[in-house]
Amino acid sequence: MPGCLILGYDDTPSARAALDVAIEQAKRFDERLVILFAYAPPGRSVGEEYSEHRRVLEEFGSVATSKAADKATAEGVDVEVLLVAERPSIALENAARARGARLIVVGTYGESPLRSAILGATPHKLLQFSETPVLCVPAGPR
C-alpha cells in the first residue's frame, strides 16, 4: 500500500493554496491524497437539536471537497474524500494516525499567533499535539 498524505480542506483561499502544495507532494512521492473536511457537530454541549445545521455543514463540505477532489484527480492523483463530524484538528490527527500518513497539509491565514489562538485556528492547535509532521501553507499569491 502506497503512503498517503492528509489535506485539511474547507475551500478557503489558504486551503486552495494548500491543495496545490498537497497535489505537488502527492505526485512527487506517488502517494494517495486524503482530502478531509471536518466540522464540529454543533450543540453537543448544550443539548440542542442540531440536524438542520449539520445538513448545512455536510452539504458545504461535500461541495468543497468535490471541487478539490476534481482538481487533484485531473492532475492524476489518487484521491480519497473524508467528511468527519469532529473538530478539525482532532479529525486530522486521527485520520493521519489511522492511515500512517507521512504528512498533514493545512492552509494558514498568516495571522498573528495571538489572533490564531483566539480564533482557535486549526494549524495552531494541530502544531501543539500532532504526532505527524504538519505542513502549513500560507494563502499568499502564488
Binding site: 461535500s62 477532489a69 484521491v79 480519497e80 474524500v81 473524508l82 467528511l83 468527519v84 469532529e86 486521527n94
Partner: peptide, 11 residues
Amino acid sequence: ESAGGSRETGS
C-alpha cells in the same frame, strides 16, 4: 474515487 465518493460519518 470520484468527488465526494467515499464518505465517512466520522471516527
